[in-house]
């Protein structure tokens, strides 16, 4: 008798664990052929709040990691993704991509992780500065992570958009709550499994599936979210995010990019989700001494 295949239950990813949604709800996205992709969690606003709590809890530890260490971990995510390439290609195909396109997308996602891995310990070298103030002070500015970032992932791709939005946020030391593509959610959850086995501490990245329309408001109004990244082109959606963001002055970033474009990466995606801190320190000035040798 033929062996019966074991099917995967798609869960969400909060605080390094894989629960089903607290709401118990599900939806069944279909591919272009009309085939059901699975019973995917229809996450609720309570799930959003739980994820924000997890992200905040993880923020202190993650932001205090040495930049070098974050770089090693991002590179590790790339390594693990490379190792599970076949699974992602299969899921992308199931969601409607050709083999060639699917492979291209996974390769691009791996390379993007490696690209941002390299940035971690270089951000402040390029973006920071020593400021020649006129008084006798040593004055310097460095970038620091902004906190908890809400990500509304690109809805038109399953993997590359999500990865391209997450990588710069965690490279800079922030933590995030991501709402995956509603129609193409499979790779998001499998990517969570990759993160979970890549030395990324639980809570640094949290991934929810379901309806962005429903979850956008609890996320954009949440007082413990510091910034929102929105990858879509929907002006109405963007406008509501911007309005909801006002209450605690969230930074709102809109990237309506084609994430497969090799140019859809760069330092500003990191520094957009960072603050700048300037420190002043006196320099004792006891004249006379020559340094003219």
């Amino acid at each position: 008798m033929a062996r019966l295949e074991v099917l995967k239950t798609y869960k969400i990813y909060i605080g390094g664990a894989f629960p089903r949604t607290e709401s118990g709800r599900y939806y069944t996205p279909k591919n272009t052929k009309g085939e059901a992709l699975g019973n995917v969690c229809l996450s609720s606003r309570k799930d959003v709040r739980n994820a924000v709590v997890a992200a905040r809890k993880a923020f202190g530890g993650w932001s205090e990691r040495a930049a070098f260490n974050r770089g090693q971990i991002l590179y590790r995510i790339g390594e693990m993704l490379e190792g599970r390439k076949a699974q992602f290609v299969e899921e992308l195909q199931l969601q409607g991509a050709t083999t060639a396109k699917a492979e291209k997308e996974v390769n691009a996602a791996i390379d993007r992780l490696v690209y941002y891995a390299g940035w971690c310990d270089k951000v402040s070298q390029v973006s920071g500065s020593v400021n020649p103030v006129a008084s006798s002070h040593f004055n310097f500015s460095v970038n620091e992570p902004t906190g908890v970032v809400g990500i509304l992932a690109d809805q038109s791709t399953s993997l590359i958009g999500l990865v391209s939005q997450i990588a710069p946020v965690i490279a800079g030391g922030s933590t995030c709550v991501c709402i995956a593509s509603e129609d193409l959610p499979l790779c998001a959850i499998t990517f969570a499994e990759v993160l979970n086995s890549s030395d990324v501490p639980g809570g640094v990245v949290n991934i929810l599936t379901g309806s962005p329309d429903e979850m956008m408001k609890p996320m954009a109004t949440h007082m413990d979210v510091n910034a929102i990244v929105y990858a879509g082109k929907d002006a109405t959606m963007l406008n509501s995010i911007q309005e909801f963001a006002v209450e605690n002055l969230k930074r709102v970033r809109n990237y309506p990019q084609d994430w497969m474009d090799s140019g859809a990466q760069g330092l500003h995606y990191i520094t957009d989700l960072m603050e700048l801190k300037t420190t002043w320190h006196p320099i004792e000035n006891i004249g006379g001494a020559t340094s003219s040798y």
């Binding site: 891995a117 390299g118 270089k122």
Partner: peptide, 8 residues
């Protein structure tokens, strides 16, 4: 590791 990241 550090200089690898500079290449691109």
């Amino acid at each position: 590791f550090y200089y690898a990241g500079w290449a691109d």
